[in-house]
Design a protein around this nucleic acid. Structure first.
Length: 421
DNA sequence: TCTGGGGTCCTAGGACCC
DNA sequence: TCTGGGGTCCTAGGACCC
């Protein structure tokens, strides 16, 4: 048996946990740059506010809806609290995303999974303020379906258990094909075309058909929905094979020097992630583009790769390479919306093939030592206490975050003070 | 004026090897 | 009339996830 624990409207719930005045009211959390809605309260969903709905439109049509800018440090910290409580109940835990985790319930055969799930849910609500729904079933994909039904039909109780084959079939029949984990728009359209509009009908297709049109990925889903577990738990977070960092500018940018500073900043973030997983990268990609909503003749979207002579995790080397690439692809006269970097060809830092023509072997060693010292200072003193000069001083490009909540659990100045009467 | 930011896996096809 | 058979690696693109 597997359990899928999924936080309800997670970002919205995080905001509400510290701002009770937001309870029971329609509200949304906005994407970076306050661009569009990425999390909605139930009340906001009921009003018809869509995922991804642009804020500038919503402002006009829904004046009574509260909004917050996204506050990722807060959400991340709350997630750590939630998962640590879950771990006390079910130690075999895979953290699947910021707001959901799978648990392997093997070994719990003689206990009542439903009862445990109800207890866990109550404790999470009390200790973190975050409401969750829990689905329990024979495979991960079925537990996703169970979770979905818990959210839709048993929200108050918050737990749904597929305990028999009949339950499973009933649940599959209730689940629209496009709502199955792993079926996106393309596959849904093709399936509906041949009359397969729910998950149950999908399980009745031949495995040959599924393999032909949906590859091995589809076959795994098909088997999971038929009760055969074949998507393994991943207890240890795998190292990233690619690391990207990009942001939209607060407003359209035309100045190369400003863009270079922003890019240096994003490169610093990506390089830190690289060092934190003890890796180096051998290839980088820099990209930039104008708004996709601009007049087509004013649109420009471009990216360029660079293979590095010697793989590295050094911020300064990566910044140098990134700036070179941006200078190559930048064309004056456009109003750029975003710039970013993607680190590729990532490998362990203890398996670096030296270059015969590398003249900087010794200085590179010293550089990495210095960077590790920088990382350590920033861990103790707060991020960006020490940073590269190339990341600039004025930072004119920064994101719009006009409705940012406080760092209630991550910044000592923002911790709530409770007064007793 | 204003529309997010990350990732994963799979397949086909081309370049290249012997 | 007629021009092999087997690999590997890399890349681009598509589909999906949150």
């Amino acid at each position: 048996m597997y359990a899928l624990i999924d936080c309800n409207n997670f970002y919205v719930s995080c905001e509400r946990a510290f701002q009770p005045e937001l309870q029971n009211r329609a509200g949304v959390v906005l994407s970076n740059n306050d661009g569009c809605a990425i999390a909605r309260s139930q009340e906001a969903k009921d009003k018809g506010i869509k995922m991804g709905e642009p804020y500038f439109q919503m402002k006009e049509t829904h004046k009574d809806v509260w909004v917050r800018s996204s506050n990722y440090p807060l959400y991340h910290d709350i997630m750590l609290r939630v998962t640590s409580i879950i771990r006390r109940y079910f130690p075999d835990q895979e953290i699947y995303s910021i707001d959901e985790c799978f648990c392997d319930l093997s070994g719990y055969e003689y206990m009542d999974p439903e009862e445990l799930a109800l207890q866990l849910r109550a404790e999470l609500l009390q200790c973190t303020g975050i409401p969750v729904c829990i689905g329990v079933a024979r495979t991960k994909t079925l537990s996703k379906i169970a979770n979905r039904i818990a959210k839709k039909k048993y929200k108050e109780r918050g737990v749904f258990f597929l305990s028999s084959l009949e339950d499973e079939h009933e649940a599959l029949k209730q689940t629209e094909i496009g709502d199955v984990w792993g079926i996106g728009r393309q596959h849904a359209a093709r399936l509906i075309n041949i009359g397969v509009d729910n998950a149950y009908k999908f399980t009745q297709l031949t495995v040959g058909w599924v393999q032909l049109y949906m590859t091995i990925v589809g076959v795994r889903m098909w088997r999971e929905l038929n009760g055969e577990s074949c998507i393994p738990m991943e207890y240890i977070r795998a190292k990233k094979k690619g690391i990207g960092t990009s942001r939209s500018f607060g407003k359209a940018e035309t100045d190369l020097s400003v863009m270079l500073e922003a890019l240096a900043t994003y490169t610093s973030i990506a390089a830190l992630k690289l060092r934190n997983q003890n890796s180096v990268c051998a290839k980088i990609n820099v990209f930039t583009h104008t708004s996709m909503f601009a007049d087509p003749k004013n649109r420009y979207s471009v990216g360029l790769d660079l293979k590095l002579e010697v793989p590295t995790s050094s911020t300064s080397e990566l910044i140098k390479a990134a700036k070179y690439l941006l200078r190559r692809i930048f064309k004056p006269g456009y109003r750029y919306q975003k710039v970013g970097i993607f680190l590729m060809d990532i490998r362990p830092d203890d398996q670096v093939q030296q270059s015969l023509f590398d003249t900087k072997v010794e200085s590179r060693g010293k550089l990495i030592t210095a960077l590790k010292a920088m990382d350590s200072i920033n861990r103790k003193q707060g991020k960006d206490s020490v940073r590269m000069a190339a990341t600039g001083y004025e930072r004119k490009w920064t994101m719009k975050q006009e409705n940012l909540s406080r760092g209630y659990t991550t910044n000592i100045r923002d911790v709530l003070v409770v007064k007793a009467k």
